[in-house]
Simulated scan of single mutants.
Amino acid sequence: MTRIVIADDQSLVRSGIRIILEQQDDLEVVGEASDGVEAVELVQQHDPDIALLDIRMPELSGLDAARLILARSTNTRVLLLTTYDVDDYVARALRDGASGYLLKDAPPAELVRGVRAAARGDTVLAPAVLARIVDDFTRREFDQDAGDAAGFDRLSEREKEVLRALARGFTNAEIASDLFLSPATVKTHIASILGKLGLRDRLQAVIAAYESGFITPAGGPGGTRRGPDAPGTA
């Protein structure tokens, strides 16, 4: 059973989300918060699997609440839910270790899939948001030597291949097929990459690789990328 805390300052929104989630046999809402401070307290009290936070809340924003939750808990994954598909919000949340970001106008089935994916340890992004993040990188200029300075020189050649495949949006199964590895070996390589770079999850590794210049969106070490219709889980 996946245990969830919901935080949103609109009671009707909280109730609607709760109804959607609790229609599923494997999902249980263990607490509701109306602001970020209350959300942090409920997470400390219940230690849920997922904290589903609205970004804009009184007292403490969802972004600040997420940072506190992730700093204090090793068990709870944070999934942000908002009407604001602003790239700065997305980048900040992911750097802080959030597991995903969905829009409030997403269909109920997408919300359920997102919660389940986050509970599995996957990173979840609304497809439109994912496309905008990658498109933003295509408009930047990169220092091709920055990757070594950021610690990417510590990766083995195979780990660099895996990271480049992650940056193209490949799943573990697709990476395994592409590199002629077993899925278990791919998972081991990803864990090693995260450990060497000091990062929480695979999407943080991809963002760090783009920002450092280790991977460029087009024509560089990262090769081609998937288009905006690529699945929103990583």
Rank of each mutant, 00 (worst) to 15 (best):
A51H: 01
I207K: 07
G198F: 08
Q24Y: 01
R132T: 08
D85I: 05
P217G: 12
I69T: 06
I20R: 05
D201L: 06
E59W: 00
P48N: 06
Y84F: 15
D54N: 08
F214C: 10
R56P: 01
R225V: 10
L199P: 04
F170H: 13
D25L: 07
L197C: 05
R77A: 06
K160L: 13
A149T: 08
A118T: 00
V43I: 11
H189Y: 15
Q44P: 02
T74M: 06
H46C: 04
R225C: 01
A218C: 09
A146T: 12
V30G: 02
L103Q: 12
D145F: 12
S182A: 10
L181S: 10
M1K: 11
S99I: 07
L194E: 12
L53H: 06
P107N: 14
L102N: 07
L12M: 10
A208I: 05
L111N: 05
L81T: 00
I215W: 12
L203C: 05
R164A: 15
E38T: 06
A39M: 04
A205I: 06
E174D: 09
L130G: 08
R67E: 11
T233N: 10
E157T: 11
A118S: 05
R154T: 09
R3N: 13
V37C: 07
A208Q: 13
D178W: 07
E157M: 08
E174C: 01
D136K: 03
P228F: 08
L80W: 08
T123S: 07
R56I: 01
G147I: 02
L181G: 09
P183F: 10
D136T: 04
Q204I: 08
K160D: 10
V134S: 03
T233L: 10
E59Q: 13
N75C: 04
D8F: 04
S192P: 03
D105Y: 12
P217H: 13
R168G: 14
R67M: 01
L111I: 14
L27W: 02
A98D: 02
T76I: 01
D229N: 14
L197S: 06
L42A: 09
D9N: 04
E211W: 06
A165N: 15
V43R: 04
A65W: 12
N172G: 15
A91F: 14
P228M: 05
L181E: 14
I207Y: 11
V124C: 03
D35G: 04
G100P: 01
S177V: 04
G213R: 14
Y210S: 03
A39R: 03
H189D: 15
S73Y: 03
V112Q: 00
A93V: 05
A218H: 14
D64F: 02
A117H: 03
T216A: 15
T185E: 09
G16H: 08
P183H: 09
L203Q: 11
A66G: 02
F142D: 03
R200S: 13
L79V: 01
L166Q: 12
P217T: 13
R95S: 13
R92W: 12
P58E: 03
A209T: 08
E157W: 06
K196E: 11
D201N: 15
Y101W: 09
D229R: 14
I50W: 03
P108Q: 07
A128C: 02
A91Y: 08
K160Q: 15
T138I: 02
R95D: 15
